[in-house]
C-alpha cells in the first residue's frame, strides 16, 4: 500500500546532457537512455526543516561577510520558489555561489587574471518563507573568459542550487542578467533550447530596486510538480 504520487517528467525546456558546443559534455554525458523507474518513497522524500542543523545559519547578504564592503555594484536578487503547479515551495534551501565583480572566483583553479576581492567570497544560502520567497544581497558578478574554445567568455551569472521537497526535485542552475549580450553566444546557456533559455534570464525590477542603495532583479525558480495520480507515468503525462 505504498504507491506514491510521483513527479512530472521534464518539460520541453529541459537541458540535454550532451551539448557538443560545451566541450566538457562530450566525454562526461551518459550515452545510454535514462532508465524509467517506478516512483517510490525514496524519490518523493527529501530533507526538510533541518537546514540550519545541516548547512548552518542562513547567509543571505554576501556583502557583509568580511571586514569591508566588496567592490562592485550592489544588487538584490529576489524571487519565489514555486512548483510547476504554481504553488509556493516554502521552507526550502536556496544556495548560491558566484564570481566577484571582476569575474574572478575565490578558487585556486580559477587562473583568470582578474583581481581577487578579499572582501567577497561569493557564497550564500537562504531559506524560502511561507510564500516561497527568497532574497539575496550580493554584487553583480563579472563576465570571464574560459577555455572551451578560442575567445570563449561566460556571461555574468549566479549559480543556484535547490533541493526542493524531494529527491526528484533537485535542481542546479544558473541565473543570467537581461542586458548581457554574451548569453546569446554562450555554449552552456545555449544548451537550453529557445524560448526556454529565457527562463534563465532574470528581470530588472524597479520595485525591487532600493533607492540610493541597490539595483533589484527578480528570478523565480520553478521546480517539478507532483503528477496528478500515482499511475501517471512518463508515457502518459502529456
Amino acid at each position: 500500500m505504498q504507491d506514491v504520487i510521483g513527479y512530472r517528467p521534464e518539460d520541453a525546456g529541459a537541458t540535454p546532457s550532451l551539448f557538443a558546443d560545451y566541450r566538457s559534455t562530450v566525454r562526461r554525458s551518459p550515452q545510454r537512455e535514462l532508465i524509467r523507474i517506478p516512483y517510490t518513497l525514496s524519490e518523493v522524500t527529501g530533507p526538510a526543516g533541518c537546514w540550519e542543523r545541516l548547512m548552518g545559519t542562513a547567509l543571505a547578504d554576501l556583502t557583509t561577510q568580511h571586514r569591508d564592503a566588496p567592490l562592485g555594484q550592489r544588487i538584490i536578487v529576489s524571487g519565489r520558489v514555486l512548483d510547476e503547479n504554481a504553488r509556493p515551495v516554502p521552507n526550502t534551501v536556496v544556495e548560491i555561489w558566484q564570481a566577484n565583480a571582476a569575474g574572478r572566483y575565490i578558487h585556486i583553479r580559477d587562473q583568470w587574471d582578474a583581481p581577487i576581492d578579499p572582501n567577497f567570497t561569493g557564497a550564500g544560502r537562504a531559506i524560502t518563507d511561507a510564500e516561497g520567497r527568497y532574497r539575496f544581497v550580493t554584487i553583480r558578478p563579472g563576465a570571464y573568459p574560459w577555455g572551451n574554445h578560442r575567445n570563449a567568455w561566460r556571461p555574468a551569472h549566479i549559480h543556484l542550487s535547490l533541493l526542493g521537497p524531494a529527491f526528484a526535485t533537485r535542481l542546479v542552475t544558473q541565473l543570467y542578467f537581461p542586458d548581457d549580450p554574451l548569453i546569446e553566444i554562450d555554449p552552456i546557456a545555449n544548451a537550453v533550447p529557445m524560448p526556454y533559455r529565457n527562463r534563465l534570464v532574470a528581470r530588472f525590477d524597479i520595485a525591487t530596486t532600493v533607492p540610493n542603495w541597490a539595483l533589484g532583479y527578480l528570478f523565480d525558480i520553478i521546480l517539478k510538480g507532483r503528477a496528478q495520480t500515482p499511475f501517471e507515468d512518463h508515457d502518459h503525462a502529456h
Binding site: 521534464e10 525546456g13 529541459a14 520553478i222
Partner: peptide, 11 residues
C-alpha cells in the same frame, strides 16, 4: 508564456 520548469545548468 514561459512558465515551467527552470532548466538545469552545470554546477
Amino acid at each position: 508564456a514561459l512558465f515551467g520548469q527552470t532548466p538545469s545548468q552545470t554546477v
